[in-house]
Computed example of a mutant assay.
Amino acid sequence: MFRRSLDRLITALSVALVLGACTTPEEQGRAAAASPDPPAPTAAAAPTTAAPPSATGAPRTSAPPPPTTTAAPAWVVGATPLPLRPDGFGQVLPTPAVLADRALPTADLLPPPVDGRFAVTVAPVPEAVVARSTWQPGCPVALAQLRYLTMSFWGFDGKAHTGEMIVNASAAEGVAGVFRALYAERFPIEEMRVTAAPELDLAPTGDGNNTGAFVCRKGRKLSSWSAHAYGLALDVNPFCNPYIQGDLVLPELASSYVDRKNRRPGMVFAGDTAVRAFAAIGWSWGGEWSSPKDIQHFSALGR
């Protein structure tokens, strides 16, 4: 009796082993799920999916993908206020290397010209533009005497852009002609936008390079109105063409551009397209003054 029972047990175990070896992983999983007491997990490591071999035949090791990062811009204009001099201007500091041969990209505020051709509009200053400009009652020129221009220009990035400017109505067509000539010459301009009122009270950062005309302010170190306050003066790439008087350089970080023998894009020189085009509409150039020397500055009033 005992012998027969033992034989039956051995036979049943053998069949179970054979059946277990023939079941698929899915079937084994279903069986384990149906079992009221699933087996306890073993200490073996969880299975991993092997990476395909590399071209050299060596197995690849799995590694997390590198983090995605956005490259920081080379220079953020207006980000760092300068310590002040006794005269209220910022301290004149050495030009940072990234600005010594300045070629920052232009941020588009208006749609660029669609066909790459020079385009210009001349219109009364829209209320929305007035609201973000420096004009206010008490400025020496009435709104009716000003015009709002949009004009094509080439950026230092080699792309065509559209800029904006407020000028005196009497000079609007002439100024448009000047920038038409600069565009044909592919003279680079970094930005061309209307100066906002809050900018007049900001701490100096010494790195601005906005090409613009109307700004309702007094002349530097003067009690009288600047020609800019009439829309009859215009600054071209101020950083590349600084204002110089004694030890003062404006913008304050543009000291490397005091050296006019080191010719770089965006600089204005005697006899070039900018000087000739402004002279053709009767505007004088501050680069011809002895002191101060205002290389960026063109004016219908001679100041």
Rank of each mutant, 00 (worst) to 15 (best):
L234Y: 08
A279E: 10
S152M: 06
R263D: 11
K221M: 10
L109V: 13
G282L: 10
P242C: 06
A176V: 08
P292M: 01
N168W: 00
R276V: 15
A97K: 14
A50E: 14
Y183M: 07
V215A: 08
P140Q: 04
V175N: 05
S133C: 08
A71P: 08
D259Q: 01
P47I: 07
P96I: 12
F278Q: 09
F156H: 08
T23A: 14
F153P: 01
A172Y: 03
G266R: 01
L234S: 01
E185D: 12
Y257F: 10
V129M: 02
R217G: 01
R180I: 03
P81I: 12
G246P: 12
G271D: 10
A46T: 10
L232S: 07
L93V: 12
A300P: 01
P59T: 10
A63V: 13
P39A: 15
N209C: 07
V98L: 12
Y257W: 03
T80C: 01
V15Y: 08
T48M: 11
A79G: 02
S284A: 11
A213F: 00
A40Q: 12
P38F: 01
L232Q: 14
D37E: 12
W285I: 09
C22N: 11
P47Q: 10
L200T: 09
D101M: 10
P94V: 04
R117Y: 09
W135Y: 06
E190N: 05
L82P: 00
T70G: 02
R180F: 06
R180L: 09
V275H: 03
P36N: 05
S54N: 13
W154C: 05
P47V: 07
A33Y: 09
V77G: 06
F278K: 10
E173V: 15
M165L: 15
V130N: 00
T106I: 05
F118V: 07
I281Q: 04
A100V: 07
F156M: 03
P67Q: 07
A50V: 13
S290W: 08
F2E: 15
G78M: 11
D235V: 15
P198K: 07
P124Q: 04
T95F: 02
A63R: 13
R260H: 09
P242W: 00
R276Q: 15
A46K: 11
D235A: 15
S226Y: 01
A181P: 00
A184W: 00
V141L: 07
G57A: 11
P53Q: 13
E26G: 14
A79Q: 08
V77I: 13
P140Y: 03
P38R: 03
A107E: 13
A33Q: 13
E252T: 04
T205F: 05
R102E: 06
N237D: 08
